[in-house]
Amino acid sequence: MGRIKVGFGFDVHQLKHQHPFILGGVDLEHTSGAFGHSDADVLLHAICDALLGAANLRDIGFHFSNKDERWKGISSLVLLQHVVKLLAEKNWQIGNIDAMVCLEAPKINPHIPAMKTNIALAAGITEDDISIKATTNEQLGFIGREEGVVAYAVCLIEKI
């Protein structure tokens, strides 16, 4: 049997009024959006960190520093594509990805199919290998006050 590894990723971004909200590569209509150096896509950042961690390739900040202007405003789908290349260089392939987004609004359930399509295309896997779930924080804390958004991801990678 081939070698497998599991990775875990987490990301959090502040929400700012009248700022774009990109999640899973989808532009969500909302009064606030995630703010950061790139497009601040917390879902993709958590997935990237899970994949990098599983392959023992450090973290997203190591590869895509927020001090590097090359990454300013960039689509996180590009970051995911780069992470997949890093994995391939070490003979790893993605088995599956399971992610959770925690936010009060907007509701993302209608957008999950498009997110899965975007991630599958960027990662070179099938949509069946991607699970995206969402929950609220029951109006508690910074998430409940709609000041921020959090994403968690786990992944399985397999040696080619």
Rank of each mutant, 00 (worst) to 15 (best):
F21D: 10
F10R: 07
V42P: 01
L44G: 02
L44C: 08
G124H: 05
A40E: 07
A99T: 05
K133M: 11
H17E: 15
I112M: 13
F8W: 11
N96P: 02
N137F: 15
I112G: 09
F62G: 05
I94P: 01
G9C: 07
A122D: 11
H13K: 13
L80Q: 03
A151D: 01
A99F: 02
P106A: 02
D39S: 12
A88G: 04
D68G: 09
D27F: 07
D41I: 06
L87C: 08
A99S: 11
A46C: 14
G61F: 06
G61D: 14
H45L: 10
H111R: 13
A34K: 05
M1R: 08
Q93I: 09
S131Q: 10
G53Q: 08
T136H: 04
I47M: 15
F142E: 12
H37Y: 15
Q93P: 00
F142N: 12
I112E: 10
K133I: 02
G2Y: 04
N66Y: 14
I47C: 04
T126W: 10
E69Q: 11
H63A: 04
I112Y: 13
I160V: 10
K85I: 14
I157H: 12
I47K: 04
D59G: 05
G148D: 09
L28H: 03
A151M: 00
S75N: 13
W92G: 04
N109P: 01
A122G: 12
E29Q: 11
A120C: 09
I97R: 00
I119N: 03
V154T: 13
T117V: 14
H30S: 13
V26T: 06
L86T: 07
E146V: 15
H82R: 15
V154Y: 04
V149R: 01
L77P: 04
L140F: 14
L86W: 11
D41F: 06
A54V: 00
L52W: 08
K90H: 13
C155N: 08
D129M: 05
D68I: 02
A122P: 10
V84C: 07
G2V: 11
L28V: 03
K67G: 03
T135R: 05
K116E: 09
Q14N: 10
K90P: 08
S76T: 01
A88I: 10
A55R: 00
G148C: 15
G9T: 06
N91C: 02
E158W: 02
P113L: 07
E138P: 02
G124Q: 04
P110R: 11
K72T: 02
H63Q: 06
Q18A: 15
L52S: 06
T117I: 12
E69T: 14
I22L: 08
I130D: 00
N66P: 05
Q81S: 15
G2L: 06
I22H: 14
I132F: 04
Q18M: 12
L121P: 01
E147V: 07
A54T: 01
H63M: 07
C48G: 00
A134F: 01
E147K: 14
A153R: 02
H37N: 06
L15M: 12
L52G: 04
I108L: 12
I119H: 05
Q139T: 08
S75A: 12
T135A: 12
I160Q: 07
H45D: 01
L121C: 12
